[in-house]
Amino acid sequence: MIIAEQKEISEIINMVGDHRKILVIGCDTCVTVCLSGGAKEVAILASALRLAFRVQGKQVEVNETTIERQCEIEFVDSLESMAKDKDLLISMGCGIGVQTIAERFFHLPVVPALNTKFLGLPEKQGVWVERCQACGQCVLDKTGGICPISRCSKSLLNGPCGGSQNGKCEINDEIDCAWHLIYERLKALNRLECLEEIMPVKDWSTSRDGGPRKMIREDMCL
């Protein structure tokens, strides 16, 4: 899922500026699961904003709502009645949610309350880790199900660099060396011979480097 975290409240207040009628919008999908932009976080942020504006002596109306998915127009459409009399929308969705709302409500400003971090999973309570960089050409079959693109600090394709020590990455010992993990897993699977093959130069055109991406399924198009 998409992992995001809330921006500093001071940054969000700055983004509000002189707006007076605000709608804080949560999303029930990824950001609810990663505890950054669900109904609960929306309630907390809306309360914090009301309090901050009261302290500042400003008359600001803060409303709140949470929709199923901010990344689908059908759900974003449902905001129509609540959004129409507002002068600012604050999205607590990921970057995709913010943009879907911006596209749908062309004449209303929308600002992000979250920083979208990465595609990953909760490793344990309160800790999320990255697992995929959406490079568009999956190599997990060759790397024991462990992604070197997203999990090696240098996205190396042919094994660990000289900075791998005690299973940790050279950049800090909080990060596992992806290639150490790959080595251990392929060893356990009795497939170490995979590592003898040179992985060819990667075609990055399927990644962001090929420009903004689009997927078309002719069979699904109406």
Binding site: P160, G162, G163, S164, Y183, E184, E196
Partner: peptide
């Protein structure tokens, strides 16, 4: 090319050198 015999995983370091030679 460079080779680091002291990095981990130690047993992989010779495989990596072999790959560099193959390259």
């Amino acid at each position: 090319v460079a080779a680091n015999p002291f990095a981990d995983p130690f047993e992989f370091r010779v495989i990596r050198l072999a790959k560099k030679i193959k390259a």
